[in-house]
């Protein structure tokens, strides 16, 4: 059975990961640094977040469907 692994971040750009050695085995809901919700995949198309650490931090939109990773934050900015 393949081990599921992934990376994610919160809206404060705190990166996290699961499935790797010394990390939680499953995705967790909230950022341990700021308490904001963690995003592990695109809320719209469920594509995983980019592997590249630089891209992970800078990406705010899904490269697959163009949706925001943080739709709530995006809505607040627009209003």
């Amino acid at each position: 059975m393949a081990v599921e692994r992934g990376v994610g971040k919160c809206e404060q750009n705190h990166a996290g990961s699961f499935g790797y050695p010394t990390r939680p085995e499953t995705p967790y809901d909230f950022c341990p640094q700021c308490g904001n919700p963690m995003v592990w995949s695109c809320p719209n198309c469920e594509s995983p977040l980019p592997d590249d650490p630089g891209e992970l931090v800078s990406a705010r939109f899904c490269r697959n469907c163009g949706s925001s990773y943080f739709p709530q934050e995006e809505g607040e900015t627009q209003s």
Binding site: R5, A15, Y20, T22, R23, D51, L56
Partner: peptide, 17 residues
């Protein structure tokens, strides 16, 4: 593997992998 990964900051694991 656990020993090596403990020095890797969160989010950089795929890079190390």
């Amino acid at each position: 593997s656990r020993f090596v990964y403990q020095f890797v900051p969160p989010g950089r694991e795929p890079e190390m992998e």
